[in-house]
Design a protein around this nucleic acid. Structure first.
Length: 806
RNA sequence: GCCGUAGUGGCGGAAUGGCAGACGCAAAGGACUUAAAAUCCUUCGGGGGCAACUCCGUACCGGUUCGAGUCCGGUCUUCGGCACCA
């Protein structure tokens, strides 16, 4: 007689045993093959673990446990991405120091993660806010700076005039301040940038060597946004400087004969340079001021009416036909893409077309095939060139090649590649982040903090608010700001901004490999042994930013010889969102958030782990369903009840042999391809079969609990013990299937007549057509249907189907 | 607008071109119980038929095939991502 199953006591017991036996610890330089499984480390928010985390973590947790049984030395680490705004805001409201808030939250997360029985190696926990960690985040920044990949530039930032704070993009969504709701304006400010654009090509190339889901690759490619085109100089008449040129970028040089005007960004330096010859400077200035007031959100809104001002007093010249064309400023052209100036071809560009209609500018068709009276013709596949002198009659493709060669030959243009991806804005006016290790010396200029002085520690602080002018709270601390120049020793001042949230997460996967190293970010030998990450799972929402940023940092560290692999992640997958029961995204304001804490008390970790993997296709969004959890609970109860019907036979019974071999194959393969829901369904089907038969051998049950172990390790270990086995499952081997025992001798074969299913027959697996026909004729219903019919054609696919055409 | 993804019962979802709806939830009926819960058994896409059975059915229109949820062409819709990107 088996004891009553007490999930709480049992789960705690096994967690303690695994911990004591160190079964989850990764071993440096172990002889076994290594497997590095990674999940996106959580931001330790005050509200604790979310069911979304469970879905994201449980997949690699299952793979990690399976790999250990398969004989791998598994590195499956956990850490906390703990710098960030919510903690700082909470500190501002309560007066509690962010350090203490963070420590509390990490403690809560750790307790919850352990309650789920996740097999993390807790000896390698990483906390991005720990000075032993951010020392190396700062060190990487210093190296980037020394290589010229970190630079400071004046640009516009989101600013709330009411709160007098600079806002991050995520705090100013929709162009409105997150806290007070007032409209955000643009304010000019010095901003640190990382030159990720210099790595655009490497980041694209690297995608060829990794196994990321196709949609992940596509999203990254789109984000980088490579476009190949031509830069062309347009000379300017009546400008201040003789022979002044305006450089434009275009991907459509073939339409050059259709250029009827030019547009430059309102911020374009051409205006200041030519202020003395521009006749309507007042009007231009007014437009520029208006643009500045608009925030990014308004300005980049599509479908809004085009506005602009003609620059009077100067004109540009189209290099192909020397025709004089007007120059405009308009906010639909921005300074941060291409050259900040465009040649306008209203006949074949939608934006230029709209602008030309509003300002009554000529529209010249150069590609036949559309109807330019109604709209711009932008299809580049069809159409031939017209009104274009030596390009007439050519296809778009041929014309593009010809004009490009012509421009390059005459030195009027050069081939050029542009990227939509912008350089990475790398500073925030916040307290709770890594201080940027830079010193400004009046005589020596901008210098990095010497590497042996790192970490530059975040000083204690009472007031976490930005200053009136929007400076970081660190600017209020004289002790911090005033320092000595590392070069000349004279009085100097520190940079007071901190790094963005993305910094710490851009290299954490390297630190897990050697988390306590004080001499280097990680020992190169250990990096060589454990790296790169074999399998990384996380959300689609991080596929662009975090995944690109961390690939960039890793690639940089590879280029300077610190890391021995160019690409950090061999394989990347992504889970779907967990939606609320009503099918809408979970959010506090909608009140449809599910807390794992109460559920774990009700049903336990195993049931919850199982449900979260069974609830639907892993990669698709799926609504939460409390009632569906019952199904998983019942399944585990029935598995436990098998102890009542288990025999003492250590082998497989003849009857279950094929079923079990197929099950092992199915579960094993499904886990590798993220098909957790069908793996679980297959185990349920097997259980139903066993229950119909009324008994299971000890050997069969052992195999079943080994298959279940990665999903529901506690109950699996408990059953193993109750079966009398001394070796715990965590130290056992994953079951193998016999490829010769995957098929039964006899199968049910569907029989079709004229492509319609009419019945089934039982035949030998390898039966030939003659045997099949014999079996069909023995079946009274089928024989009757075929009686007196002339069979014109017979299609027989072994193991699949037979079809008679009559 | 561009790029990507997906449309299958009341619900979540299964199906290398080969028995559509596996598995689970919910629901209904029954057994056990004084009763309820739990558990166990049965039914469960739609129409028709007393019944054996039969017809229809995977967003929509068409095509390929002995055979299409699956492949091809077109249309509509959902959900993501990017977006005045020149």
């Amino acid at each position: 007689m088996k004891p009553e199953y007490d999930f709480q006591a049992t789960e705690q017991k096994w967690q303690a045993v695994w911990d004591k036996e160190q079964v989850n610890a990764a071993v440096d330089f172990d002889k076994k093959p290594k497997f590095y499984g990674l999940i996106e480390f959580p931001y330790p928010s005050g509200s604790g673990l979310h069911v979304g985390h469970l879905r994201a973590f449980t997949s690699i947790e299952i793979v990690a446990r399976k790999r250990r049984l398969e004989g791998y030395n598994v590195l499956f680490p956990i850490g906390f991405d703990a710098f960030g705004l919510p903690t700082e805001n909470f500190a501002m409201q309560t007066g509690k120091h962010p350090r203490l808030v963070t420590d509390d939250n990490i403690a809560t997360f750790t307790r919850q993660l352990k309650a789920f029985g996740y097999s993390f190696d807790y000896s390698r926990v990483v906390d991005t806010t720990d000075k032993g960690y951010y020392k190396w985040t700062q060190w990487i920044f210093v190296r980037l700076f020394k290589k010229g990949l970190a630079y400071k530039s004046r640009t516009y930032v989101n600013y709330c005039e009411k709160c007098k704070v600079i806002l991050a993009n995520e705090e100013s969504q929709g162009g409105v301040c997150d806290r007070c709701g007032s409209t955000v304006v643009q304010k000019e400010k010095d901003v640190w940038f990382l030159k990720i654009r210099d790595y655009a090509e490497k980041l694209l190339d690297g995608l060829n060597d990794v196994d990321f889901l196709p949609r992940i690759k596509t999203e990254q490619i789109n984000w980088i946004g490579k476009s190949e085109g031509t830069e062309i100089d347009f000379s300017v008449r009546h400008s201040v400087k003789k022979d002044a040129k305006l450089k434009i970028f275009t991907t459509r040089a073939d339409t050059l004969f259709g250029v009827t005007f030019m547009v430059i960004a309102p911020e374009h330096p051409f205006i200041a340079e030519n202020a003395s010859v521009i006749q309507n400077m007042d009007e231009i200035e007014a437009y520029r001021t208006e643009t500045k007031k608009k925030n990014e959100f308004e300005r980049t809104r599509v479908n809004k009416d085009k506005t602009g001002v003609r620059i009077k007093g100067v004109a540009a010249v189209n290099p192909v036909n020397n025709k004089e064309i007007p120059i405009f400023i308009a906010d639909y052209v921005t300074l941060d893409y291409g050259t900040g100036a465009v040649m306008a071809v209203p006949a074949h560009d939608t934006r230029d077309y709209e602008f030309a209609k509003i300002y009554n500018l000529p529209i010249v068709e150069v590609i036949a095939g559309g109807d330019i009276a109604t709209c711009a013709y932008t299809d580049i596949a069809g159409g031939t060139l017209v009104n274009s002198e030596f390009l007439n009659g050519l296809s778009v493709k041929d014309a593009a090649a010809k004009i490009r060669d012509w421009l390059v030959g005459k030195k009027l243009g050069t081939r050029k590649i542009n990227y939509n991806m912008k350089d990475w804005a790398f500073n925030r006016q916040r307290y709770w982040g890594e201080p940027i290790p830079i010193v400004y010396c009046p005589t020596c200029g901008t210098l990095p903090v010497p590497e042996n002085e790192l970490p530059l520690v975040l000083p204690p602080l009472d007031n976490y608010r930005q200053t009136e002018s929007g400076e970081s709270p660190l600017a209020n601390i004289a002790d911090f700001v005033n320092c000595k120049c590392p070069k000349c020793g004279g009085a100097a001042k520190r940079e007071t901004d901190t790094m963005p949230q993305w910094a710490g997460s851009s290299w954490y996967f390297l630190r897990y490999i050697d988390p306590h190293n004080a001499q280097a970010l990680a020992d190169p030998k250990k990096l060589d042994y454990f790296g790169p990450v074999d399998w990384y799972n996380g959300g689609m929402e991080h596929v662009t930013r975090h995944l690109i940023y961390s690939r960039f940092w890793n690639r940089f560290l590879y280029d300077i010889g610190v890391v021995p692999f160019a690409e950090p992640y061999k394989k990347r997958t992504a889970q779907g969102l967990v939606l609320g029961e009503n099918g809408i995204k979970m959010s506090k304001s909608l009140g449809n958030v599910v807390s794992p804490d109460s559920l774990i008390k009700e049903v336990g970790a195993d049931v919850l782990r199982l449900y979260i993997m069974f609830m639907g296709d892993y990669e698709s969004p799926v609504p939460w369903s409390n009632s569906s959890i019952n199904g998983c609970k019942r399944f585990l109860d029935r598995i436990y009840n098998l102890l009542d019907v288990v025999t003492t036979d250590e082998g497989y019974s003849k009857k279950h042999e094929v079923l079990l071999n197929r099950l092992i194959k199915k579960v094993s393969e499904d886990v590798e391809s993220l098909k957790f829901n069908t793996a679980i369904a297959a185990m349920m089907t097997f259980l139903n079969e066993i229950n119909t038969d009324g008994s299971i051998t000890k050997g069969e049950l052992k195999a079943l609990i080994l298959l279940l172990y990665p999903f529901v390790p506690h109950i699996a270990e408990e059953i193993n013990t109750l079966l009398g086995y001394k070796t715990m499952l965590a130290k056992s081997a994953y079951p193998k299937y016999d490829p010769n025992k995957l098929e039964a001798d006899e199968i049910e074969l569907p029989v079709q007549i004229n492509g319609k299913l009419k019945g089934t027959i039982t035949v030998a697996l390898t039966a030939d057509l003659a045997a099949v026909k014999e079996a069909v004729m023995k079946n009274p219903t089928l024989a009757e249907l075929l009686h007196g019919q002339t069979i014109k054609k017979e299609i027989y696919v072994q193991k699949k189907i037979v079809n008679f055409i009559v």
